[in-house]
Design a protein around this nucleic acid. Structure first.
Lengths: 205, 205
DNA sequence: AAATTTCTTGACCGATTGGTCAACGTGTGG
DNA sequence: CCACACGTTGACCAATCGGTCAAGAAATTT
């Protein structure tokens, strides 16, 4: 995949520089999209020269794909943490708050993902088909089970997940719009309260 | 603004070609973002030559800005149609369904807007400050009034609007993801039912 | 049908893009 | 301290970008 470390242990320098590059690339890609980002921008942001960046990665696309791969794991983690043995309503609300927290804490990752999906997911489609789909299928079955037991109000599990993703990521992805409309109000605090109310009223059996 | 028709009446040819160009540009811009779209792509999609496109528009940015201007009007229209004298819950639900319908009917417009906001709204910021902000402020006051009268459950009006935008536009903006997870299920039909339940339970006093 | 305006385009341009390469440092194990 | 792999870069390249221009084709007006 990458030029360096075809099968050997990464040097300290390799580890440090690959991290630097990926962090700079995340900043640039999430801000300008794949096509809008340039290697020169990433080079400047990482403090390395352009040829040096190509020494650590096979090219622009390699950097982008590496970022997306790293992202998918972290992005799906909260969904995996839903406890089938916990209280249904509280488990889902915890998931909502965790996703909102990630939206505030990792807005660049959220925008990187949004950009990729907006363009039709050309470089992440395999991950969606495999990792995401099976996890969503499992979670849907879990939620359906909870509903059948009467522990949650009846809703379509998939649309529930869509709405949770949409409402939480909105604060990162549409930050430019939210910022204009909220002026100097405490955005995320109000969002936490609102979303808690929203999903509590929806799901209370 | 544009090269042609500085102050005169537009010819039939001008009207036809400008429409062709804008339609092709909407397709390309919404698919690849501003930076990712090229004039050659727009030229090919519109069936005109590149110099001919530049005869009708001052440049790439002029086309993009023209699209965004047209978009903002149509995008805000449903919000203006909320009737202060109607039934609060039904007015808001009608707004939700109208927005969802637009998401299904005009996904390219939704993605064009999402792309612009994701990049930090560099070319549409003035419209947000002026048109959108005042309209949202008015609507927030209206909703707050309804809540004070006890005709709606108490929620933050601004976060309510955010969640409506997020949940409805999600089906257009994240279509690539939704398509994978819903396979051949009737996506929008289920979405309409789900969102109706969601906001009805949230807002019922 | 001539005159004039509107419309169309092939050829071209400078700038920027992702990527290459040879040459030159630099760290590290023997 | 020396050999050798690792790390770094200035100079360069072909391709593509948005945009220009002069010259010709079509409409429209007279």
């Amino acid at each position: 995949m990458s030029t360096v470390t075809p099968a050997k242990k990464p040097t300290r320098i390799q580890l440090r520089n690959r991290t630097r590059i990926l962090d700079a690339a995340l900043e640039i890609f999430s801000q300008h999209g794949y096509r809008g980002a340039t290697l020169d921008q990433i080079a400047a942001a990482s403090g390395l020269s352009k040829p040096n960046i190509l020494y650590y990665f096979d090219g622009k696309e390699d950097i982008h794909v590496t970022l997306l791969n790293q992202l998918m794991d972290a992005w799906l983690a909260p969904l995996r943490e839903i406890d089938p043995n916990g209280d249904p309503l509280e488990e889902i609300l915890r998931y909502v708050h965790r996703k909102l927290e990630m939206s505030r804490e990792f807005p660049r990752e959220s925008r990187l993902f949004a950009n990729e999906i907006l363009q039709g997911a050309p470089r992440i489609a395999p991950h969606l088909e495999s990792g995401l789909k099976s996890l969503v299928d499992e979670t849907s079955i879990l939620i359906s089970g909870w509903i059948a037991e009467g522990r949650l109000a009846p809703v379509d599990p998939r649309h529930l997940l869509f709405s949770i993703w949409a409402t939480t990521q909105h604060y990162a992805d549409f930050d430019a719009q939210v910022r204009v409309l909220m002026e100097d109000r405490p955005v995320h605090e109000g969002a936490g309260q609102y979303l808690d109310t929203l999903y509590r009223r929806l799901l209370k059996p």
